[in-house]
Structure formats: structure tokens, C-alpha cells
Simulated scan of single mutants.
Amino acid sequence: MATVILVRHGRTTANASGVLAGRTAGVKLDSVGRDQARRVGERLAAVPLAGVVSSPLERCRQTARAILDHQPGSPATPVEKGITECDYGDWQGRALAELAQEDLWSVVQRQPSAAAFPGGESLAAMQARAVAAIRRHDSALEAEHGSGAVWAAVSHGDIIKSILADALGMHLDLFQRLNVSPASISIVRYAPGRPDVVAVNTDAGDLSWLAAHPPAAEGTVGGGAGPEAAVRPRS
């Protein structure tokens, strides 16, 4: 099975000012976000990526470029509308502190499966199209590059949370229990029987084992020895 690395874009000017950017054009990484994106690229430099797929929004494309700066051969970087930001409709561009006073806010927090943004899309529709897009790219990249393929998808916080919730078998109503920080990395493998969630919301740590440690087809009873056992040289 292939391995998908889910990367949230770095911090933006909207994140820093507490505004729900949504699909607003021109929202870019701030200085902190650019540094975060560079560190993500450095962290992934040890992993030869079969592909990098990005949301069409500028902040994700900036983050994807920072990843590619550290990849030999510059793998293809298709834009995937299926993993673009949620369409927040009339909420887009408004301050989060103001939105927290809306009745819909509590629905988004406590029963996301019932939340539909006025003039936008529902969170359930967002999850369905995001999961479908990730699974489609995963199947295509595995077919092209083999079961050891590792690839990255650069997207947004709610998108990645919804993909992780699906992979974990969690109802969408529980997805607010997950945290996905700017420039964080989460890792999922779609095995034939079920997804395997390898990591969630990490912002540091060596990832070279992804290139050396073949994925197991089944969960290891007792937890297994971990990737270090597979890459440690014999004495």
C-alpha cells in the first residue's frame, strides 16, 4: 500500500489575525508560515516523494513549493480541487470571535454532520469529496509507483481533520476532537482491509524511516517493534 503524508499549509495572515479565510483569494503565508513551510520541506527531504498534490489555494501551493524545493527531480504537483478549503459561504472573511456568537457555531462544534454553511457547503459534503480525492490519488500513485510509494497532499485544517476522522473510523460528529496545526504532518496508509493511521498532527521528528520501512499489510498484535527495528543495521 502507498503512504500519504497529509500536510497542512503554514500559518497565514488570516490565521494570525483570527479571520476565517475560506477560499478568499490572495491569502498567503506570513513570515512564520514561510518558515514553517521551509521546515516541512527540510523534514520531508529524507523521503523521496512519488508526488505532491496541492489544494489550489495560494497558501497550500506556497507550502507545496517549499516541499518540492527539497525534493530531487521535482515530482509532479497537480492541483486538486477535491482537497480545497471548505466553502464556508457567508462565513468566509469574518472574524472567528464574531462567528462564535452565531447559533451555527455550536452545531459546527458539537454536531458537525448537521452543519451546513449559509451560501456554502456542508461539512459532510466537504468530507465526502476530500476523502474521495485522497483515495483516488492514492490508488493512482500506488498503481504507477508501487506499494512502497510515498506521496504528500497539502491541504487545510478542516479538510485534513475530516480525512483523518474517516481513516480512524470516527463519526464526523467527533472530528473536532482532532487537532491539525499549521504545517503539521499526519500520515495515513490505505490498506486493502482498512486504513492505517500512522501519525497525527506532528511538527517535528525524523521521517527517513518512511523510505526504508515497508508498510505492514495487517496490524501487528501487541504493537510490533516499530520502524527502527526494520532500519537498524545488524551488528
Rank of each mutant, 00 (worst) to 15 (best):
V7C: 05
V7R: 00
H9W: 00
G10F: 01
R11H: 04
T12A: 06
T12F: 03
T12G: 01
T13F: 02
A14R: 00
A16E: 09
L20C: 05
T24L: 13
A25P: 13
V27H: 02
D35S: 11
Q36K: 06
R39G: 04
G41Y: 07
E42T: 02
A45K: 04
A45C: 09
A46V: 14
P48L: 07
G51S: 13
S55Q: 00
P56G: 12
R61C: 08
Q62K: 03
Q62A: 04
A64I: 08
A66W: 01
H70A: 13
Q71M: 14
Q71G: 12
P72W: 02
G73F: 06
G73C: 04
P75H: 10
A76I: 08
T77W: 07
V79F: 11
V79Y: 12
E80Y: 02
E80Q: 14
K81E: 15
I83M: 03
E85L: 02
C86T: 15
D87P: 04
D87H: 12
D90Q: 06
D90T: 06
R94N: 06
A95E: 10
A95W: 01
A95G: 01
L96F: 06
L96N: 02
L96K: 03
E98A: 15
L99F: 05
L99I: 10
Q101E: 12
Q101H: 13
E102A: 14
D103L: 08
D103V: 09
W105V: 09
S106L: 12
S106G: 10
V107F: 06
V108F: 10
V108P: 01
V108K: 03
Q111R: 15
Q111H: 10
P112A: 05
A115I: 11
A116Q: 10
F117S: 01
P118Y: 04
G119C: 08
G119Y: 11
G120I: 07
A124L: 09
A124Y: 02
R129N: 10
A130D: 10
V131T: 13
I134G: 05
R135L: 14
R136Y: 05
D138H: 07
L141N: 12
L141W: 12
E142I: 06
A143F: 02
A143L: 07
S147F: 10
A149G: 10
V150N: 00
W151L: 09
W151D: 04
A152N: 05
A152W: 08
A152F: 08
V154Y: 00
H156C: 03
I159M: 07
I159A: 02
I160A: 00
I163R: 04
D166W: 09
G169H: 03
H171K: 07
L172E: 03
D173I: 08
L174E: 11
Q176R: 15
V180F: 00
P182F: 01
A183E: 03
S184H: 00
S184T: 01
I187S: 03
I187W: 06
Y190K: 03
Y190G: 05
D196Q: 15
D196F: 12
V197D: 13
V197S: 04
V197K: 08
V197W: 05
V198W: 11
A199W: 15
T202I: 13
A204N: 12
G205A: 12
G205K: 03
S208F: 09
W209E: 11
W209N: 12
A211R: 08
A212W: 13
A212H: 14
P214Y: 14
P215H: 15
A216T: 13
A217L: 15
V221M: 08
G224S: 05
G226I: 02
G226Q: 07
G226S: 09
E228W: 15
E228I: 15
V231R: 12
